[in-house]
């Protein structure tokens, strides 16, 4: 569609210049605002991401500190020793209550965001980067390389993700745990293993999506004309094709992020992910299950947080998709 005709004066106004320079971004923004639900979801996701960064600092208590019960304290000489404040209902001091070990649920959630959001985010970014590179390459080169890698990806994808995750985790974690590398030990073998597993699972999926998008662009006239002026393959991939796959990439990235959260939380719930006392949200749910009647808050707050997060990410991904579909028309 052609730009709406405008008078010469209107064309020179600052707003018009801005619109022209940032044409794509301007349209993107206007359409995003027009989808209130997706917009709100995006804000929520950004909020959760922020929490995963600053959660450590704003948490009122350390995540593994047993809170004292002021009503059950015994003075023993100088020291006052208090019993643990187990299963306390939400109060001003503990807005989300405490769990069966007497730990503050809110603090644990704030700390845990790093594992439930941060870790999937890092893993997703890695697999998106790797998958994009791979997808662009095999989509553009085609031929036998593409055929072989694509078949292999098909096969990899025919193993249900969670099974591949379980098997990989069960072998990768002990391997890493046996390693003496101080870096591995400081990050935690389980965290590295989770990131590796997600990258292993999602790189092929991203690659397949990007490959399909690349195939659609590979034979476009402007790509062929780039070949005809002797551009290198790298230039064609990065400057001619890549901008065209960004929409597919954004949508797929958001979806992968959602599934990565899903996977990390599920593994935590199965007891195969983060290990106590790490307050990963799925693990918190597992640990709170036995005390469901005594301390329902210890269960429902993490469950609610996961639900809100996942739903928001999905709504955001859906909003992005609609946006780009609209753009195509």
């Amino acid at each position: 569609m052609a730009a709406p005709a405008a008078s010469p004066e209107a064309r020179r106004s600052p707003l018009a210049v801005l619109q022209r320079r940032w044409w794509g971004f301007w349209r993107f923004w206007r359409r995003l605002v027009r989808q209130p639900l997706a917009f709100a979801a995006t804000l929520i996701v950004l909020f959760f991401m922020m929490i995963s960064i600053v959660g450590h600092w704003i948490a009122p208590y350390p995540y593994d500190a047993v809170q004292p019960d002021p009503d059950r304290c015994v003075a023993r000489g100088e020291a006052v020793r208090c019993a643990a404040l187990s299963n306390a209902p939400p109060s001003l001091a503990h807005p989300f209550g405490t769990d069966r070990n007497g730990r503050d649920v809110l603090s644990r959630l704030l700390y845990g965001a790093r594992y439930t959001i941060g870790l999937p985010l890092v893993a997703t970014l890695l697999s998106v980067a790797l998958g994009t590179g791979l997808g662009l390459l095999i989509g553009y080169t085609g031929g036998a390389v593409d055929e072989v890698i694509s078949r292999f990806i098909d096969i990899l994808l025919s193993i249900p993700a969670i099974i591949l995750a379980l098997v990989s985790l069960s072998t990768v974690v002990p391997t890493l745990a046996a390693s003496q590398n101080p870096l591995v030990q400081s990050i935690g073998p389980i965290n590295i293993a989770l990131v590796l597993v997600i990258v292993l699972l999602y790189t092929p999926i991203v690659a397949r999506v990007i490959r399909a998008a690349t195939l659609g662009l590979r034979d476009r006239g402007y790509v062929e004309l780039a070949k005809l002026r002797g551009e290198s393959t790298l230039y064609i991939l990065l400057r001619e094709i890549f901008p065209g796959v960004v929409p597919a990439l954004a949508v797929e990235g958001a979806l992968r992020f959602s599934y990565a959260i899903f996977l990390v939380a599920s593994l935590g719930f199965l007891g195969l992910g983060a290990q106590p006392p790490i307050p990963e949200w799925g693990r918190m749910v597992l640990d709170a299950r036995p005390t469901l009647t005594a301390a329902p808050w210890a269960l429902w707050f993490p469950v609610g947080a996961i639900a809100l997060l996942v739903i928001s990410v999905n709504l955001m991904a859906d909003g992005l998709q609609r946006l780009y579909q609209e753009n195509e028309r």
């Binding site: 794509g24 476009r220 006239g221 004309l225 400057r239």
Partner: peptide
């Protein structure tokens, strides 16, 4: 090319 939409990269 036949189709100018094909010939110009929409991002350039």
């Amino acid at each position: 090319f036949q189709n100018p939409n094909e010939a110009l990269n929409p991002h350039h």
